[in-house]
Design a protein around this nucleic acid. Structure first.
Lengths: 161, 161
DNA sequence: GTTAACAGTTTACAATGTTAACTATTATTT
DNA sequence: AAATAATAGTTAACATTGTAAACTGTTAAC
């Protein structure tokens, strides 16, 4: 027989706790794994730029990656300094900056994707194909359910080195 | 026909991106919703203390919540200042501090749980009971798969006000 | 043509992880 | 029993990054 407290806990906590725990470990381990590529924890920004379906402005990236624009500027400054991206003014709209990967970055993209894929394999171990598909579709549903909540931007902060 | 780039992306990114996006919105919206309770973003620390099955030391909490011990000290300092918890030296082992909720905190726990439950309902809308159960069991599997990776502590940082 | 909106930048500040040094207490070794 | 090691927690200095506000330059709207 569960106490009132336990019932409360079981009804309310697991989602946030599990998601949080997974994400912390997931990004922490990935950052560590990709240390040698020299892009700090910003590999996912490179992936987003690499995969941009439309013109890749800073606005687009900060929306996609859920960073505020000030942080986005800093992250892109960092990636420019690392010679991983270029920032060029869009001639069609001179307010915008277009972000592109450099050749140097292009060269490490396969390693980044490989690292992510490997981590996903490890994370999903023991789940059969059906489970995995349902899991992803649940995630997508939840993502949409939550998307337009009046939430705030959040930063996932990782150990530096 | 997918390009090489698109194939790479589809194989590697969705897990991290979906998890990250969900978590940011989820905690952001919850923090906002609980602003009026006056515990900043640290409601989940209160839940952990409330639900502790064993003696609740700072070590126990920082392991459970994945905060490093320095941050844990700061968070508990904050909660003590807010008169939400008490810190007492454990007479059995005078190195340890036992953390307990105050009456003031006990009073707001139902509201906190209600807020979390409401958010979960919103997040899981459209998923039937079976899907939800499978989803939770997938999360638990992933959590275990990832748990002992050599990852780093991560902070979920939220907008202040 | 004037005003408003937008993209991006800069600055100052606040929150929090990291590292290292520290205190007090308990456990272990010899 | 005394010396040493390990543990729990604290403090201080520093780095990263979100927030807010003020700013520039450019484009859109009226």
């Amino acid at each position: 027989m569960l106490s009132e407290k336990e019932k409360r806990f079981n009804e309310s906590m697991p989602l946030g706790k599990l998601l949080g725990g997974i994400l912390k470990k997931y990004f922490g381990a990935l950052s560590k794994k990709m240390e040698h590529l020299g892009v700090d924890r910003h590999f996912s920004t490179l992936v987003a730029i690499d995969n941009a379906k439309q013109k890749c402005t800073q606005q687009y990236l900060s929306d996609l990656l859920d960073f505020d624009k000030v942080s986005m500027v800093r992250i892109l400054d960092y990636l420019v300094a690392k010679k991983m991206i270029t920032r060029t003014v869009n001639p069609q709209d001179r307010r915008e900056h277009l972000i592109q990967l450099t050749l140097k970055a292009e060269k490490i993209m396969p390693a980044i994707h490989h690292g992510i894929k490997e981590m996903n394999l490890k994370a999903l171990k023991g789940l059969n194909k059906n489970d995995q598909e349902l899991f992803y579709s649940c995630l997508a549903t939840i993502f949409n359910n939550i998307e337009d909540l009046p939430g705030n931007k959040v930063d996932i902060k990782l150990k530096k080195k």
